[in-house]
């Protein structure tokens, strides 16, 4: 790691911006600090976020408020069963005036893409989006178009038991860095929400607190955060343990490990540290890993949920005590 470390000033900026964005979002989504913080982690770690919950708890609110807090291009794609892949990626159309084909960018050409109810679209369309997510580019008619940086997809989805949904395949869920559930608000928060949301729309009041250029800088700072060898081993050990346990039919992929460490770097930077602790990794394990894992039939029939199994796995992995040399 010969790269220069993120210095104190950079980390200070990062913490300040993160706090401002957090403050903005929390004006809309009340009483969910950990959900908000997970959202920020994914933003700074250049990942994509999957928000999964029942309708009406503020999934769209969360994604919109994040998008509004950043002064950058924002597109929202409402996924419906009849949405076509070209609606997402863009399409070449024949221009009668110039007599040439010209490319009309689709919904993904933005810094923040809000994919609403992503599991309502057909798998074909879902795939179109997910390819862009991974490659950060769009190829139409043999022409490749780079997507802007930062690029973040915030997808919301209903739990798969709900009607009219196409479940995301495991391979595609794997591309999201983290999944959060907003969950029902506590009573006090719901009461406060009634007071603010009935008189006016707080979303409209949100002012951007940062822009794309600053965000790129912050993402670069996160990239400088140091991950020591014991912490790397810890992350790998956690993934390995998910593959070993009999409670899980599908364990974490290497990409999951990668996402876990990247998220931990962002988390550490937000805490003002230029190095990652095992505690950062452990704190993010559920958010980053849970949506990629499949419980085994026995575990599912025993009523054990993936987070429970994951907690058990985490408890079984010892933190390497390796000394720094």
């Amino acid at each position: 790691m010969a790269a220069p470390s993120a210095d104190g000033a950079d980390l200070g900026t990062l913490a300040r911006v993160a706090d401002q964005v957090r403050g903005n979002i929390e004006r809309v989504i009340e009483g969910k600090p950990d959900v908000v913080s997970a959202t920020l982690v994914v933003l700074l770690a250049e990942g994509h976020l999957l928000i999964e919950d029942v309708p009406g708890v503020g999934k769209t609110m969360l994604s919109k408020s994040l998008a509004r807090s950043i002064d950058c291009s924002v597109r929202r794609i409402q996924f419906t069963p009849d949405l076509l892949p070209s609606d997402v990626t863009g399409v070449s159309v024949f221009n009668q005036d110039t007599r040439t084909f010209e490319f009309r960018p689709g919904g993904v050409f933005a810094n923040v893409v809000v994919g609403d109810e992503i599991n309502r679209a057909s798998p074909k369309t879902q795939s179109a989006l997910l390819e862009c997510m991974e490659e950060r580019q769009v190829t139409v008619d043999n022409t490749t178009y780079q997507l802007d940086s930062p690029f973040m997809v915030i997808a919301t989805q209903n739990p798969i038991e709900m009607e009219g949904t196409y479940a995301l395949p495991e391979a595609q869920r794997d591309r999201f860095m983290a999944r959060v559930s907003v969950g029902y608000p506590v009573e006090a928060a719901e009461l406060a929400m009634l007071q603010t949301h009935t008189s006016h729309r707080p979303l409209d009041d949100l002012e951007p607190v940062t822009d794309a250029a600053e965000l790129r800088k912050l993402i670069a700072i996160v990239g400088q955060v140091y991950v020591s060898e014991p912490v790397q081993r810890y992350a790998v050990a956690i993934s390995a343990a998910t593959r070993r346990t009999s409670d899980l039919a599908l364990g974490a992929s290497p990409r999951a490990t990668l996402h876990l460490v990247r998220a931990a770097k962002a988390y550490a930077a937000m805490a003002g540290r230029d190095y990652v602790l095992p505690d950062d990794v452990a704190a993010l394990a559920e958010r980053v890993l849970a949506h990629r894992l499949l419980p085994s039939t026995e575990a599912a029939m025993g009523g054990r949920t993936t987070p429970e199994i994951l907690a058990g796995v985490l408890g079984s992995v010892a933190v390497p005590e390796g000394h720094r040399h």
Partner: peptide
Amino acid sequence: PAASGSPVVDRELVDQVR
């Protein structure tokens, strides 16, 4: 000893993570 119990590490993956 401190090192006991640590899992076998896939070096390649560790490098990737780094």
